[in-house]
Design a protein around this nucleic acid. Structure first.
Length: 121
RNA sequence: AGGCCGGUCCGUGACGAUCGCUGGUCGCCAUGCCGCUCCGGCGGUGAUGCGCGGUCAGAGGAAAGUCCGAACUCCACAAGGCAGCGUGCCUCGUGAAAGCGAGGGAGGCGGAGGGCGCAAGCCACCGCCGACGGACAGUGUCGCAGAAAACAAACCGCCACCCGCGUCAGCGGGACCGGCAAGGGUGAAAAGGCGAGGUAAAAGCUCACCGCCCCGAGGGUAACCGAGGGGGCACGAAAAACCCCGCGCGGUGCAAGACAGAACAGGGCAAAAUCCGGGCCGCCUGCCCGGGUCCGCUUCGGCGGAAUAAGCCCGGGUAUUGGUCGCACCCUGCUCACAACAGGGAGUCCCGGCUUCGGUCGGGGCUAGAAAAAUGAUCGUCCAACCCGCUUCGGCGGGGGGAACAGAAUUCGGCUUACGGGACCGGCCUUCGC
């Protein structure tokens, strides 16, 4: 699934709305914030947050690129229009792509972003 | 051969597959606009795009720190000064400037223990170091140790003094008043050194030599050197504490700056009492201009003025922390077209040649442009570091897994700092062979 800029969250106000009105779920490497919105024309919109706590620009770029690629591969499972914000925690800087993908699938399952019968492997 | 140090250069290895991101460009599609129309559409335009497809480009030597210098931007601007900041031996080269390079001067540290000398010290040699104007313009500072650390200073001492003993030399005790900076000890540093005279003991108190200070023939483009003469010596360190002196500097930084669109709601205090038209701004809730109105003057064309407020307070709205530009080389050929590719030009950097030092010629490299911030993710193969085994010491086989510092943010030139590995050059050390 493609992830052009238009499918990402870029406006400050959108981030704030997900934070104040949406729900969050914490994992080891990631924090998932999500907000259902049936008025969305897209299946979902994604925002990635990589704070300076992760490390320098190189580390943050790497984490962000990995997460984007993971979401690209798996996002077709999202069943309803959602605003999705992924915040990378400090441990994510050291995590492998495999670990991140596993956690992302687990988070999608726990928060019912995906269909209930689509279980993480 | 190995190790260490210094310098220069290269710098997330190469190839492929699948899936993606940002931008340019081309084609198609959709929307918009314009024209025609037999009202079905057709043609043009190429403005718009979460659209589809092709094609091309897409992180570094430091992109970093944001420390200098410039381009560019807006603001300010008679001239000078103050404050502030920067800078600091001399000459030459290079450069727009910062800076960089070469040579020289003075100074400091170390080595060897060479020459002269009784010694102090001086001379010569080799290697290294650097923010290198001024410490008699002024204010302040100098830990610990030590008696005393900058208008020097009596702890142990020395001498003199008083008492006793002794023929004398001297010895013991007292006193803590006087003289002394020679010796000891402390310290990074104890207020010139050394020898002699001198003295109660001493002291540049006096003298020679050395050092230091002043003047200085002469030499050198200059920093500076310095024959010779004079002075009994005054002047500790640090200017990277402040400071003083010379020289330089207007401020602002791409969130600069320019433009467009969109949106809303006013109220209060105070004050005053009219509308219309047009334009402008980025912040708006306004402003400006013109007309009409009123007043005065008039040479009857006009001219001048006044008011419709200014101001303050409380709110509200808009601009996506961001739209477009700034801002991301140009032209020609090939091609349906865009590219790749080829040729030419521009800018810039590097290398080399020539030079009348102004330049010029040849070759090579580079020309990314995001905005919650693209330049990637996954997999495979091969090849390095490293590990294991074998070895005829040349290598061979197996394992192994991309590793340091680090991510463009207007651009360019420097500086500084960080860094795994490789290549080359130079120096030193060790071992082996000849």
């Amino acid at each position: 699934m493609k992830l052009p800029r238009s499918r990402r969250i870029t406006r400050r106000a959108d981030f704030q709305r997900v934070r104040t009105s949406g729900s969050t779920y914490q994992g080891r490497f990631l924090v998932l914030g999500y907000l259902s919105d049936d008025s969305l024309s897209e299946p979902f919109r994604l925002g990635l947050i990589t704070t300076k706590r992760l490390g320098g620009a190189v580390v943050r770029n790497r984490v962000r690129r990995r997460l984007r690629a993971i979401v690209q591969r798996t996002a077709h499972r999202i069943r309803r229009p959602y605003w999705v914000v992924l915040i990378a925690r400090g441990a994510a800087a050291e995590a492998t792509s495999e670990q991140l993908e596993k956690e992302w699938k687990w988070l999608m399952h726990r928060t019912s972003l995906t269909d209930p019968d689509c279980r993480p492997e």
